[in-house]
């Protein structure tokens, strides 16, 4: 009988549930993107072109210093030397308009930053929550899979043990049958064993007794107690020899029985070793299956862990992005600057 090598079930683990990261492309135009592109806030309305002419030369230097550019020169030829007069222009900045625009843009961008941060925060929370849910799902699946595996493992083990028991029973039956055939044959060889030796002992001691008694007759002591003693000793020695002989026979028979038993035992041991090997193989297979399960479980754990680590990394990456709102201090400085200029030139 052999173990059913196909009887052991394979059990597979559970797949890691798919999981949407929940993150969006923020720069993509249109839905679901909420992030618009920033346009240049420059506007021509911010500037006012001013022209002046007939500016005497002595004023030209000061005006140039004030940002006026010479656009043309006319001479008063009437004077000798002729006297130049200059036409000049300059672009003036309407800073309140700029301030207004910039303020508006500041506020808009600040709102965008707040919104995006809130969206990202909410997305991350939702993703974490989703990840937690899917992890729970995965855990539940693993537990179910483990329960199924245990049931299957116990079933496989029971089946395996039944087959081992069957093998042992079969081995015992075979050994007993073999022994039953072998033992009578072996014992048959012991039948009448020692009969000749027993006869020899009796004959030897009878002869010895006769010789001793003859000697006693020769010595004239055949009617003494020595005869009784010699007979007693002869009987005792003979009985001891017979007893020893029987003991020896018993030992031989016992030794034979031991050999038979030993042979039976060794036969059984051989079969047991076969069974043990098969048991070991089956146990190894069971262990392999268990290892596969463990490997699968570790893989599942690894997969989930890796997925979650990726997600956590991604969330960290996302979280590290910070939509920074415009700096209101700069805005205040700018506004202050603009206010201080009073319509004059503002040094960039």
């Amino acid at each position: 009988m052999t173990l059913d090598e196909e009887g052991l079930s394979l059990h597979t683990g559970c797949a890691v549930p798919e999981f949407e990261s929940g993150q969006r492309i923020l720069v993509q135009s249109g839905s679901p993107s909420v992030l618009g592109t920033s346009s240049n806030p420059f506007s021509s309305g911010w500037f006012n072109l001013e022209t002046i002419d007939n500016i005497p030369q002595d004023a030209v230097g000061w005006l140039v210093a004030q940002g006026w550019n010479i656009t043309d020169v006319t001479y008063d030829t009437t004077k000798t030397p002729k006297v130049p007069y200059y036409d000049m222009k300059r672009e003036s900045l309407k800073n309140w308009v700029i301030l207004q625009d910039l303020l508006q843009r500041f506020v808009d961008k600040d709102n965008d930053a707040l919104l995006l941060n809130a969206i990202r925060y909410n997305d991350i929370l939702a993703s974490w929550d989703n990840m937690l849910e899917t992890s729970h799902d995965h855990f539940n699946q693993q537990e179910v899979a483990r329960d199924e595996y245990e049931v299957q493992f116990v079933a496989d083990l029971a089946k395996y043990m039944d087959e081992i028991d069957a093998l042992i029973d079969h081995n015992q039956d075979v050994s007993l049958a073999d022994y039953s055939l072998h033992a009578p044959k072996a014992e048959q060889f012991l039948t009448d064993l020692g009969t000749a030796e027993l006869a020899r002992i009796n004959e030897t001691f009878a002869a010895s007794l006769a010789e001793q008694l003859q000697t006693l007759v020769d010595k004239g002591l055949s009617t003494s107690i020595i005869v009784v003693e010699v007979k007693a000793r002869n009987t005792r020695d003979r009985d001891e020899q017979i007893a020893a002989h029987k003991d020896r026979l018993s030992r031989e028979k016992l030794d034979n029985e031991h050999k038979l038993y030993d042979q039976q035992t060794r036969l059984s041991e051989i079969r047991h070793r076969g069974i043990a090997e098969k048991s070991s193989q089956a146990a190894a297979r069971l262990e392999g299956l268990k290892s596969m399960y463990d490997e699968c479980a570790r893989l599942m754990t690894y997969q989930l862990d890796e997925r979650n680590k990726i997600l956590v990394g991604m969330y960290g990456f996302v979280e590290r992005r910070d939509d920074v709102a415009p700096n209101f201090e700069m805005l205040v400085q700018l506004a202050t600057g603009l206010g201080d200029s009073g319509g004059g030139w503002v040094t960039p």
């Binding site: 002591l221 009617t223 003494s224 107690i225 020595i226 009784v228 003693e229 010699v230 007693a232 000793r233 005792r236």
Partner: peptide, 14 residues
């Protein structure tokens, strides 16, 4: 008396 005939000093009856 003794049946131990190897005991040559044993009592003897004759």
């Amino acid at each position: 008396m003794s049946a131990d005939i190897s005991d040559v000093g044993r009592p003897i009856l004759f």
